[in-house]
Design a protein around this nucleic acid. Structure first.
Lengths: 335, 335
DNA sequence: GGGTAGAATTGAAACGTTTCAAACTGTAGT
DNA sequence: ACTACAGTTTGAAACGTTTCAATTCTACCC
């Protein structure tokens, strides 16, 4: 049924070793022979069997990438960055979506481990890195993405979320807002708690400013909607005058609830700032301010670190790259 | 270095065959033995080697999915639907992004063929199905996604794009608009030409109505922006009074250019309708009307057809499922 | 106690590739 | 003519799993 190197070898009347060499080290084979083998391959429609290659090689040519949420354009962008860089090394990226769910995350880790991936890129769900530690001991390089690793543990690529949170809150305060609501959750997710921490610091610097935490179950549009509905039920006295959403999906949901279903105006009644600066932030019903992160660069750099770690003897110190986030100001925080 | 079944067998003092049976047919092994083998696995930290499994099995447990554009939430949603259904059969989905680029599409097809994927789901770029035909003859079931296959060729899952285009244009006409611009491209992409065809039919039914085609190089936000800029340069007499964008990304770009950088109002000066009804359409600067497609359902159904084809002897007729699109009306076409 | 059905276990073969030491060729130098 | 040597080619071994026919074990019945 399937055509194998053996068949090709027979058709070109050479040995299997030669066929393999034509495929992998053409310079070691006489040009005439290369020619002959190539046409046999063409004729028989031979297609390499990747499973056999991998088995022999011990490692696959794929990189596993586990993200928190594929529906979030931020992660799509990270993935694209990683893919670009990986493709340049003729590596493939396998995308896994944990959906911020521990069970699914574990399932992908198992899967990638069984596949003997070349390396693993992951935005881990929680602080428990034991599983990843085990993976690495097994010889799979691991790089943390969008999350700073504890020193001397893993390589990581991250954006300073505390700084980002600080930027966001300071911007709101600079606009004269004093009662800030931080919307986001679960707080167990490091990105969320760091952004909150940053916001707290900014608020602490301004006399008379207060921050309230409105926890959510996830970082999605519907959750944002729900919070929006709840906020506008409040009396003006109880209501915050600015909202800092832990990511742009929440911000979109909030906006939708406030403007479309409710009667609160943004930014007049409530200023709004999001996080990630996804493309859609600029075209939202009220284009909203956000904290921009270099998503694609994050992905590319993560692959770089991975390759570095893979080529080394595992003896080097892990490297931790941290990018600075950047404020992007739009209508939702003007006036 | 790596722990293999052989090591586990030795540790549990059984044969390799028994270890394999514990893993794959536990019911065929005495409970006490299962117990012993399992603890040996645990102790040694044994992890199955997927490459070896696949090599033996002849096929991998993954489904390849090639989409036109991962940045388009419509395709993300299709992918999620496919994943859900695949996961239920403990299959994995490998996501490939052709980016509407023939070379990259071909690269993914090669890759998936080498991986001996369980099956292939693809939104093909052009009308040339010869490559896919070859793949199928090689024993890989193929299902076309979001594109109706010619009768008796492949199984496919699609949404009636002609009907969708008709719905969109008729809606604009029903709102009193008479000079409609169709924005989209490349026209070689079937989805685009079908939607245009539908629109043409609707326009033909109304006396005094005209349609103008504004071709684009891709279906992206920046392309939409560019067209938006161009449109608002025109004099009111030359300008269309309604735009039908071939997808929502274009629509977002158009909206951005018209409202933010320009001085045209939507829908007063120009009505706008998109296609796909991605989540962000509802929260756009002017929430815009769109043609909704059941994206996740498309993905799930595609996997169903694939499994059906894979289980059969390849003798059955290919099945072609077509869903109906649906109009969703929002502010961009009101009044 | 002999026979047997059935359950449990064994171990070699096969999947298709790559690697690598060994064998083979032909050419050039002495 | 003989050696040295580089350039080619060879073929067996190894990667780790699953399968399956053959074997051993167990328990039961007559």
């Amino acid at each position: 049924m399937t055509v194998s190197v053996r068949d090709v070898a027979a058709a070109a009347s050479v040995s299997v070793g030669t066929v393999s060499n034509v495929l992998n080290h053409p310079d070691k084979v006489a040009p005439a022979t290369v020619e002959r083998v190539l046409s046999a391959i063409e004729e028989l429609g031979f297609v390499r069997n990747d499973a056999a290659r991998q088995l022999r090689a011990g490692r696959s040519r794929s990189i596993g990438l586990v993200v928190l949420d594929v529906r979030n354009p931020f992660f799509t962008e990270v993935a694209r960055g990683a893919e670009d860089r990986a493709a340049a090394e003729s590596l493939t990226v396998l995308l896994g979506n944990s959906g911020a769910n521990g069970t699914r995350e574990a399932a992908y880790l198992d899967l990638f481990e069984e596949q003997r991936v070349h390396g693993l890129l992951i935005t881990p769900l929680n602080e428990d890195l034991a599983r990843l530690e085990r993976l690495r001991r097994g010889g799979t390089p691991v790089v943390l993405v969008d999350r700073q690793a504890p020193p001397r543990s893993f390589s990581s690529v991250a954006v300073d979320d505390v700084a980002g949170g600080f930027l966001a809150a300071r911007h709101l305060l600079g606009r004269g807002r004093r009662r800030i609501a931080f919307v986001g959750g679960p707080l167990g997710i490091r990105q969320v708690s760091d952004r909150l921490e940053g916001a707290r610091r900014a608020v602490a610097e301004v006399a008379g400013a207060a921050i309230e935490v409105v926890p959510t179950g996830s970082l999605t549009v519907p959750e944002g909607c729900a919070v929006g509905e709840a906020l506008q039920e409040r009396s003006p006295a109880e209501r915050p005058d600015a909202v800092f959403a832990a990511n742009d999906l929440l911000a979109m949901g909030l906006l939708q609830a406030l403007m479309l279903r409710g009667r609160l105006r943004v930014p007049e009644d409530m200023a709004l700032i999001g996080y990630d600066d996804i493309d859609f932030a600029a075209t939202a019903i009220v284009p909203f301010s956000s904290i921009r992160q270099p998503a694609a660069l994050l992905g590319r750099t993560a692959v770089d670190l991975l390759l570095q770690e893979a080529s080394g003897q595992g003896t080097e110190e892990p490297r931790q790259v941290v990018f600075r986030p950047e404020l992007v100001e739009r209508a939702s925080t003007r006036a």
